[in-house]
Design a protein around this nucleic acid. Structure first.
Length: 467
RNA sequence: GCGCCGAUAGCUCAAUUGGCAGAGCAUUUGACUCUUAAUCAACAGGUUCCGGGUUCAAGUCCCGGUCGGCGCACCA
């Protein structure tokens, strides 16, 4: 059966429901409209048929009568899920349901599969993730989540634009994977006969644009990390990275808390949200505490990056954390913080002053050179953002990279490689600059009140089915 | 990668101690001029995730595998 190539559509369900909200039962309007959508439910009754049609805005009833509707039998024969285009008058039935009284109808496309049980919908996770197109019709929650994610991205982008940041795009195919600590995906370019890594972060490219004179840049895009999949990790995820010349870490913290609170206002209309049954306030300003303070409080003993490495290692082992031989005091302090304090950070908080050992791209703290001017924001027990005053000294940057190379040689497959081109860029001069990274999926989870990252990704990474 | 749990009709789910594989919805056929998950009647629908094994007999017990959920590890 051939189907139409286009349909003249001029009304949405929700608009009609609003416009004719006060129409009395049994009243007709004389207004003829053309609506389109999917048939979600069908109730036939002899020479009458009632269908519930859904479009992108909402639902409206279609009311067909043998005496009025062209090819009435064909209409009553429509399958649940079929796309239809309807021409008819807006009326309210005797029983009070706003309807389009079908004069003419066309089947725009046929649905060969149904959209699940009309009461329970589709609940099987595997089916929902592999066939999100069906899940979207079966589960309103899925529609809401993906709409909210879209609103989050829009809000982030508009707020960056409003603060005079320029949106740029940098390479996803890279000769070396750098800018973060993670294992990369590898791929191959045939004509260049070269292996490439999918980017794990756009960080170094963006700072090279700042060197080039783009004083405020941001990129909103996908990064790829070859790590485990979990309810909070997808191998490809979306990150906002943003750099501002002349700012320091404090400026960037202020920007971050305003950005996140602003996104919540834009999408939900409030900063006072509920996440997984617990109230959570995203309102600025957020608390600021150093990593050493939080670790000390959590373990009940004063520790810092200057605590002897062996003592920190002993504390970690006492907590059941196995300590790698290559870890210095800085890494041990960070591990202590993560093991003892991180999961209890519910309200948004900036954790600051990370050890230089775990921050190879951040500028040293002005008072204590073993620390950096860095922050990570935590919320609902997990990291939401990461930022710092950028290291702009090419000599120090080279020695940091060399330290990373030593870690790699010692077996750390997440250590960064030396990026000579980046060092050369710094030699041209990076002004004082602060940078920020925000996980958009994690932010969307907060806004959508979802515990599983797959619920805010249209098509999450799944294992292909093998026979 | 490791541990625990799950997979039965298109969808949502039952199936007692190992004893004939079922229901609702969807599909098909019929009735019905105001339905709202319409209702009523009838028909049809199965590689019980895949592959082995134990047993007179396996959806059920055992072994291996696939995919998913949760936890751990890794990480953001």
């Amino acid at each position: 059966m051939s189907t139409p190539y286009r349909f003249d559509h001029n009304a949405f369900a929700k608009t009609l429901q609003t416009t004719y909200a006060n129409l009395a039962d049994g009243e007709e309007t004389g207004a003829v409209v053309k609506v389109a959508g999917r048939v979600m439910l069908m109730r036939t009754q002899g020479k009458l048929a009632f269908a519930t049609m859904r479009d992108s805005s909402g639902e409206i009833q279609l009311f067909a009568l043998e005496a009025v509707t062209e090819n009435f039998a064909g209409f009553a024969d429509l399958h649940l899920g079929d796309w239809v285009g309807i021409t008819g008058e807006v009326v309210r039935t005797k029983r009070g349901e706003l309807s389009v009284k079908v004069a003419k109808w066309e089947r725009l496309a046929e649905a060969l599969h149904n959209f699940g049980d009309k009461w329970a919908g589709i609940t099987d996770h595997d089916l929902r993730y592999r066939h999100r197109e069906a899940d979207l019709w079966a589960n309103e929650r899925t529609r809401t989540n993906l709409q909210r994610r879209s609103q989050v991205v829009r809000s982030v982008r508009e707020r960056c634009w409003a603060a005079d940041f320029v949106e740029v795009e940098t390479p996803m195919l890279n000769a070396i994977a750098t800018g973060a600590s993670a294992r990369p995906f590898t791929t191959h370019h045939n004509a260049l006969d070269s292996d490439f890594f999918l980017r794990i972060a756009p960080e170094l490219w963006l700072k090279r644009l700042v060197v080039g004179g783009f004083e405020r840049v941001f990129e909103l895009g996908r990064v790829f990390r070859n790590e485990g999949v979990s309810p909070r990790h997808n191998p490809e995820f979306t990150m906002l990275e943003l750099y501002a010349a002349y700012w320091n870490v404090d400026d960037m913290m202020a920007f971050t808390e305003e950005l996140v609170a602003g996104v919540a206002m834009d999408v939900l209309g409030t900063t006072e949200i509920e996440y997984q049954g617990r109230p959570l306030s995203l309102a600025a300003p957020w608390k600021r505490r150093t990593m050493a303070e939080l670790a000390s409080e959590a373990i009940g003993e004063e520790v810092s990056v200057h605590t002897p490495r062996e003592h920190l290692a002993k504390l970690l082992e006492g907590r059941g954390v196995s300590v790698h031989a290559s870890w210095g005091a800085g890494r041990c302090l960070s591990e202590l913080f993560e093991d003892a304090a991180e999961a209890d950070l519910w309200e948004p908080i900036f954790v600051t002053e990370h050890p230089v050992e775990i921050s190879p791209l951040a500028r040293r703290h002005q008072v204590d050179p073993e620390l950096t001017e860095r922050f990570e924001s935590y919320c609902a027990g997990r990291e939401l953002s990461n930022g710092f005053t950028e290291l702009n000294d090419p000599v120090d940057q080279r020695s940091r990279f060399e330290e990373q190379a030593r870690l790699a040689a010692a077996g750390d497959d997440e250590a960064m490689s030396i990026d000579e081109d980046y060092i050369k860029a710094l030699e041209w001069g990076l002004p004082p600059t602060a940078g920020l990274g925000v996980g958009i999926d994690r932010l969307s989870m907060l806004i959508a009140d979802e515990a599983n990252i797959k619920e805010v990704i249209a098509f999450p990474t799944l294992k292909p089915i093998r026979d």
